[in-house]
Design a binder for these strands. Structure first.
Lengths: 334, 334
DNA sequence: TCAATGTGAGTAATCGATAACCCAAAGAGC
DNA sequence: GCTCTTTGGGTTATCGATTACTCACATTGA
């Protein structure tokens, strides 16, 4: 048997309303004596609030529902969910995730979720992309995380890719690097935006962004011969010409990992001969490379926390697209 | 405004009890005509069950609570949570995860969770380990996933590490390999158990398990000089003696990744000169290596599904430790 | 024809927490 | 001494779904 307010009231010789006030309603008028006594009894009996019962009056459960657009894999989910959680916790809310896998549609997941009457709902993508949300859900879904709603019907939080590339490129320039090559990952929204920022920073720094060296890596393999040979041959070629680069900016940490291997084979040392910098801060990789990799950390936690803030705000703000800044993680590769 | 049974009843000109019976109670007595009409109206009005209200009578919400012992990182969480989810879905339950991070204790997380009145609670570890659960929670937590309760007070589901090593070693022997080396990952429960299975298989196959070649890798780095040189020197040494191995069994896929690189540097081809096999099936790695890696897949999904089964079973089975078998994923490295 | 049985559906209580509303007693100001 | 306000706390309705209980009507068998 679980303990209810009634049990406590009986034990304390007061009414349930007094107990409710003592435990939850901070402003309820009663003597400190009564309040304390009731709290002690509750503790003693092991009372635990019944959210379901409370929600009958409130109309909602203290839950933030998250629709995750892929199986909650990748360390990225951690950041987003963790950020949401820490933001939600401040308001005594919990995060409740459901995955949009197989042939479960947004509509069906939303309905399943609605049965629990969450206070607010977010949609989270596992990598930066555009998502088209059917118009009828624009009201229900309060915020898009790590993706932009295709018709801008919902407030979206996305990483500021171009800004990050700008910052990182400036960082390399400030470190005295003058000849920076960029090894891109074609086909990803993130890398395309990063390339823009890269070129922009060069322009602002007095170099010619349009003419910068930008080479494609392959997104599909770690050690497959093709991928390795592609990055490897790029690096080899870069290092064999007279004006060899003194810095290589990589599309993401996995590319950086390959670049490390390639540079090592060319006999170049990092960062003395060539600085290497990157994006994502996939800690498992970045912090374990040798030397540890300087990289722009994706703002997953920040996006999650911001999302919680937006969802739990008193009054709904107008729809907008918010670019969340990366964080520069300085390690030893620059 | 959300639609309630009352609204439907009004619209249909029947009582709420009839509506409830028509939508949920499969056995409620009423004409098919009435039932159908009510369902149509419910659909039309966009009715969605209110679980909170239902739970007032049932006493629990259709939720399976999961206490995850680390930030739900790593692709492993996916399997466990996904398995739980698919098992729970069969009974129309949802999975509700909370993370045991920072200084949140099991007790506090359990209380937070209890406020939502989940039907059952599981404890999931992100890698195979022993966990000591305070005695007072042995009743509350129905099953331990990927870990074994230290005092065997709770039914535990763990991967059958030794069995997997046995199977994989036999597989190598059946493939005609006669000289198998094992590169271990010291300090992990999983690898220690795997080593036992490895030696046992050799014994059973007529080789001397006790004298088998078992070498330690390092668990901490991908590309750090030390780790690389350790695996590298191991491999180099193995390959430089007359009775070089014709197969290397690796403690896990990350070790295999390093072994691939080392073998390549020695000029050995996989699998012609040396077969490589491993454990975990960390797909991102295993399927992208060249050649794709043959490995024993951790039974994360299976454990999750089994856990749901146990938690939702009518009558509670006696406490036991269940070893869940791995699955052999044949790729091209053997 | 009349009681027995069965069928479809309504009534009202219930779960636990909350909130609008009410009431009694005590102290303040005239 | 009397009204006014504040303090401490009780009563009761309510949220939505379920369910034990009840009832009206129809059918069936004697």
């Amino acid at each position: 048997m679980t303990i209810s307010l009634n049990d406590i009231a009986e034990r304390a010789g007061v009414s349930v309303k007094t107990v409710s006030g003592a435990l939850h309603g901070g402003s309820a008028r009663m003597s400190d004596d009564t309040r304390l006594r009731i709290r002690e009894i509750a503790e003693e009996l092991g009372y635990v609030t019944n959210f379901a019962a409370r929600s009958m009056r409130q109309g909602w459960m203290p839950l933030i529902g998250v629709i995750a657009d892929e199986l909650v894999t990748s360390p990225f989910a951690t950041g987003i969910i963790g950020g949401l959680d820490s933001g939600a916790r401040a308001s005594d809310m919990a995060v409740f995730a459901m995955t949009l896998s197989g042939r479960r549609t947004v509509a069906s997941v939303l309905e399943e979720m609605h049965r629990f009457r969450p206070r607010a709902v977010a949609y989270a993508a596992m990598y930066h992309k555009r998502v088209e949300l059917p118009a009828e859900f624009a009201e229900t879904v309060g915020v898009m995380i790590n993706c932009r709603e295709a018709n801008d019907r919902v407030t979206s939080l996305v990483p500021d890719e171009a800004g990050a590339a700008l910052e990182m490129t400036n960082y390399l320039l400030n470190a005295g690097r003058r000849n920076i090559a960029y090894i891109n990952l074609p086909g990803l929204l993130a890398s395309e935006l990063r390339e823009i920022g890269f070129r922009q920073a060069l322009d602002q720094g007095g170099f010619n962004g349009a003419n910068a060296t930008v080479l494609p890596a392959v997104n599909r393999a770690i050690y497959s011969d093709r991928a390795q040979s592609l990055v490897h041959s790029h690096v080899q070629q870069l290092m064999s010409v007279p004006q060899r680069p003194d810095a290589i900016l990589c599309g993401n940490d996995r590319v950086a990992m390959e670049v490390y291997a390639a540079l090592r084979r060319c006999g170049a040392t990092i960062p003395d001969d060539v600085a290497v910098a990157s994006f994502d801060n996939q800690v498992e990789i970045a912090s374990r490379l040798d030397p540890p990799l300087t990289t722009m950390a994706l703002p997953h936690r920040a996006m999650g926390r911001k999302a919680a803030q937006i969802l739990l705000a008193e009054d709904r703000a107008p729809v907008e697209v918010k670019k969340i800044p990366f964080r520069l993680v300085e390690r030893l590769s620059v």
